[in-house]
Every structure is written in structure tokens, then in C-alpha cells.
Design a protein around this nucleic acid. Structure first.
Lengths: 323, 323
DNA sequence: TTGAAAGCGTTACCAA
DNA sequence: TTGGTAACGCTTTCAA
């Protein structure tokens, strides 16, 4: 493998000049440049990334942290990789599996300059603690955060959930249940707030066993239906789901149990993923791609010294066949 | 940010000794070690990754190349990140979007020592050309490859497809159609070979318009059903799919078109993903996780100087409700 | 057990 | 427009 020194010697110039050619400096004569470029080509030379990173103090790598990669995360991840790539940044995945120690490695990697910035999709460490890492580089979060200086790119789900609730009530459903995600998350709190508010406003019944938590995926959704069926006489008319995948699970299991959707049970998903479209599930359109792009845009002032305009975000309801 | 030099000076030792502490060298007195460790702690010191990578000539990063991240890729990616992480390796995603130039960047990054190794999930460049990069580091592929020294971790899909075909024939289906993936891929050729062989062996009909190519996802699957319905009188009894997602699309669209599954149309997926289970789709179990682990194991001799035993791979058929 | 010094391969500042 | 040289922060070899 050839290096700058060899190129310089062969060309009869100094390393400095070769470096200038590499960095498209205007202060190189045309002649010199062509000569050096020719030699680089002959030697099949490419600069060593580690040396550049060390010297510049910048790696052009961004870490992205998630407890696990599922289809919801995928939509965000995919969009983020795409937009970061447009600005020459690469993306490194850190999956924690909910392990605090493992998750912390990503933050340590910011400190040790392996990555220039960090994007949190989900995290389990204390956010106040995590925000002490902000001094090592910019950090943004998809997951909503409180009491920290880590900015979040997500929207308050209160609005979106409200949309779904109003839709159900307007359609005449009154016995409304929920399949929430992480119990302690801000999203879940927002959703609960919306639910409680509207149910009491309209004087609608709320049964304890209608509200499930820690429901994340298809299998969890299937289980919810089986749980609800335990008390058939108190069966809800509609269910709001943590995400579309939960809705898929509920829909499939409901069919398996000979329930008619939406007559026996109406279902509303969340996110408007491809699958919700395919299976005809009414859902809330969550602009994930726009949020992923915003995540990069929020990092960009510190990364590339450029302020980018953020996409404006808005929920909307997509009515399909499950309500 | 503190560095080795500062630690050394404060501790009253040389950089070499501090470095030895960092690398758990046995040639440091207990006293010295504790003293140095204490100072590191006080200064909140962590070594700079770029400096280490430059000095050692190793980055502990592995690049993984795919044209796009979809759910099938996800299963592989997720498992690979997991196993690589166990050996302290991080994973960098390169999505090419089928763009040869963009894809090549990953290989250039191997050359410029940004990554220590490469895993190809799918690629569009000429494989003979790509294999010239093998001299810069180990490369393995999930996608099957021919005529190169890039080893593949995938199985010949002939076997798996045969399993599905025999199952259908045994169940009495005779008008069998296909939804293939990338037309030029080795997988597709294997599948076609299996199909042609068994159909001629059993003297079964093969209609031109039964065989679709470039069918990759749910939407493509939906379209296949609409296409087939164009000629209702020549409608097949069964369809084999490129993957489970295609099968999902076909199943959903079939229902929408009031076709009964499996009476009017039997469906067989491929891969046995979570979704196939949920929707009760008969499919071929493809040990993706084992293949992802094998991918790392095949790199490991050159990466960590250790030969690992590969998982043995085997297909099997999972019968559910769509056949 | 410790230290001095030469790498690793760039960039960037100051002169010329 | 060019060159010399000091960073960048660590590892590793050779001596002591």
C-alpha cells in the first residue's frame, strides 16, 4: 500500500503539495497537479481514512442507537442512512438489547472520537446522565426526552392519538381500549393523557383490563386479543395500537378467533407503514422519513457548519377497512 | 480532552508505560498500574479510536453492503450486528440503491482502511471486478456468487425450492406458477432449474404468463395477482414466491379479489419470517440467522486469527394454511 | 519493569 | 506556488 510520502518522492514534490492536490486546494499549479494525479493513479493510491480522521479530528461517521432493529426502527434507520450518505456521512449501528452497559459504548465512542455525532432511536440509560456526553459532540433523539439538552426530533403523540380517538368516537364506537408500548415512555404518557381526556369528556366507559402495556410487535398483538377474549362480556368495540405491527397481530388473531373486523372489533394502527396499507388497516400517518431527515438536519450545524431548514411535521388519519 | 502524554506526565511515567496499562500488558508493576489507572479516572480519560486504528492498522469495523434495507435484509443484518458485536466489531451499513458507484465506495473503504472486512448482502457490480478488492481484506457474501474468490455463506436454493414444489405436487396441485426475484441472480436460476425439472418430470403444464420476475416485496406481490387475473381461464392453482413478503402481498390481494386461499390459489412463501407465521403462510424455513453468524465466522480467521466452526444449514418446509 | 524514540499517514501552519 | 515540519494520539521495538 502506497502512502503520501511515496507519491511525494516519486513526483518530486513535498507531502504538503500532494496533500493539497488531495484536498483540491487552488494553490497548486495545473502542471504539478496533473503530474501528481498521474502518479497516484499508477500506484493505485487512496488516502488512509484513519490518518485523515486522526489529523482532522473528524470521522464522518454517525452512530445510531437502538435497543433492537425492528420494522419501525427500520423505516427511520433507512431514511437516516440515506440522508447522512448524501453528506458523506456513514452510519454505525449500536444495538443495546436494552443493556445499559452496551448502550453506553455508543456514548463512549463519541467521546473517543470514533463517531462525530449520535442519534438515539431508543435508550435505556438515564437521560440526565446521557446528556453529559453532549460536550463530546452533537446528540439528537427520535425517542422523546425530558429534562435534558438532547433535542428530540419526534412529535408529541398526543395530537396523533387524539386524531384516532376522535375518529372512533365519530364513527360511534364507545367501548375503546388501548395497546400501549413502553409503559414509562413519554409517548405512552401522551397517549394516555389523550385517552383519559377524551373518554371523560364524552363520558365513556373505561375498563381496567382494556388497557395493555408493553405491547410492541405482532406476537404481542395476538396475545392481546386472547387476553381480551377471557372476559367476553366486557369485550371492547375498538382498540388503538402502539404501532401498525401490533395492529397486524390483533387483526390476524381476531380473524383466527372468528371475530369480524370492524363489526366485532375496530382496529387503529400507528405509523402508516407499508403493511398497514397492504392489510387495509386504518392508521395514523406518522412522517418517519421526515423525522429521520430532521435528525440529520439538527446535527448539521455542528457537523458541516450549515443550518438546515427542518421539515414541518403533521399527523393525519388514514381510514381503511378496520374502522 | 486528555491524552496519553498528559497521563504519562502526571503519573511520572513514560507514554510507553501508560500504553502498557491500557493494553493490559503484564510487564507493569502493580503499583505503577494502580497509580496510572487512578489518574486516568481523574482525568476522565479514554483513548482516541482513530489513533489506535491508525497505529494498529485495524479499525474493528466491518462494512455490510446492500442495495436497500428491507425486512429480509433486516433479519440478516440484525443477526450479523449481534455476532460481530460479541467480538468487539462494529458494523457500518452501505446502501447502494443499486448504484454501482455508491456500492464501490464500500470497497474503496476497505482499501483505505476504514473497515477491516466486508459482507455483501447484495451487489450490482461485476463480481470478478469486486474480487480484486480481496487483497485489501476479507470479503464474504450472502448473495451467491460465481467465478470469484469471494466465498458465499448462502445455500443453493435449489434444495429449498424443490421442497416447496414437491409439497405442492403431493397435495395435488398441478398448475403451478412462480414469482421470482432478481432475474439474473443465481438464486433465481436455481429455482428455475428446480421448477423446470419437476414440471417436466411430472408432465405438468407450464404457461408463459405464470412466471413473473423482479418480484421483491408486498406491492409487487399484489400486482402479480392482478396480472394473473387478466387471464382468468388460465389461472394457476398455486404460486411459489420469492420471499414471504411477496406471499403476503399475494395473499392480501387474493382475499381482496374474493379468491379463496388455498382453494382457488395456494401460496408458498420463502424464508419463514415472523410475518409468515402470523398470517399462516406455508413457507420454506431459511436459516438466516445461522448464515449471518457464518458470515462472521468466515471472516474470523483473518480478523481475529481464529477458525470458527460453521453452522450447518438445512432447509425445511413449514406447512400452514395457504396450501 | 521502564523509557526513548521511531513509526502509523495525514493535515495545517509558517516560511520562502 | 511550494516546502519543511510540527501536530494528531497511540503502538511497538530496542535498550537499559
Amino acid at each position: 500500500m502506497s502512502n503520501l510520502d511515496q507519491i511525494a518522492k516519486l513526483a518530486g514534490f513535498s507531502k504538503a503539495t500532494v496533500s493539497r492536490v488531495l484536498n483540491q486546494s487552488p494553490h497548486v499549479s495545473h502542471e504539478t497537479r496533473t503530474k501528481i494525479l498521474k502518479i497516484m493513479q499508477e500506484l493505485d493510491y487512496v488516502p488512509n481514512r484513519n490518518a485523515i480522521s486522526l489529523s482532522k479530528g473528524q470521522t464522518l461517521q454517525i452512530g445510531i442507537i437502538t435497543s433492537t432493529i425492528n420494522e419501525i426502527v427500520l423505516a427511520f434507520l433507512d431514511s437516516f442512512v440515506e440522508v447522512a450518505g448524501q453528506y458523506e456521512f456513514q452510519t454505525i449501528i449500536y444495538t443495546s438489547g436494552e443493556d445499559k452497559k452496551k448502550e453506553l459504548q455508543a456514548f463512549e465512542d463519541l467521546k473517543r472520537k470514533r463517531v462525530d455525532a449520535l442519534v438515539i432511536i431508543s435508550c435505556v440509560n438515564d437521560t440526565d446522565f446521557l446528556s453529559t456526553y453532549c460536550k463530546y459532540g452533537p446528540i439528537v433523539s427520535w425517542q422523546r426526552m425530558e429534562h435534558t439538552d438532547i433535542r428530540s426530533v419526534a412529535m408529541d403523540q398526543y395530537e396523533g392519538y387524539m386524531l384516532a380517538l376522535k375518529h372512533l368516537i365519530q364513527k360511534g364506537y364507545t367501548r375503546i381500549s388501548n395497546a400501549f408500548g413502553r409503559p414509562s415512555s413519554i409517548n405512552t404518557h401522551s397517549r394516555q393523557r389523550a385517552y383519559e381526556q377524551i373518554m371523560s369528556e364524552h363520558n365513556l366507559p373505561v375498563l381496567q383490563h382494556w388497557n395493555h402495556s408493553s405491547i410492541y410487535n405482532i406476537r404481542d398483538g395476538e396475545q392481546v386479543v386472547r387476553d381480551l377474549l377471557q372476559r367476553r362480556e366486557e369485550f371492547p368495540e375498538a382498540i388503538l395500537c402502539a404501532n401498525d405491527y401490533v395492529a397486524v397481530g390483533i387483526l390476524c388473531e381476531a380473524r383466527r378467533q372468528r371475530l369480524n373486523v370492524p363489526e366485532d372489533l375496530a382496529i387503529v394502527g400507528f405509523d402508516n407503514t407499508e403493511l398497514a396499507h397492504t392489510m387495509g388497516i386504518t392508521t395514523i400517518q406518522n412522517p418517519i422519513m421526515a423525522q429521520a431527515q430532521n435528525a440529520f438536519f439538527m446535527l448539521s450545524p455542528q457537523l458541516i457548519g450549515r443550518q438546515m431548514e427542518l421539515h414541518s411535521l403533521e399527523y393525519c388519519l388514514i381510514e381503511r377497512t378496520t374502522t
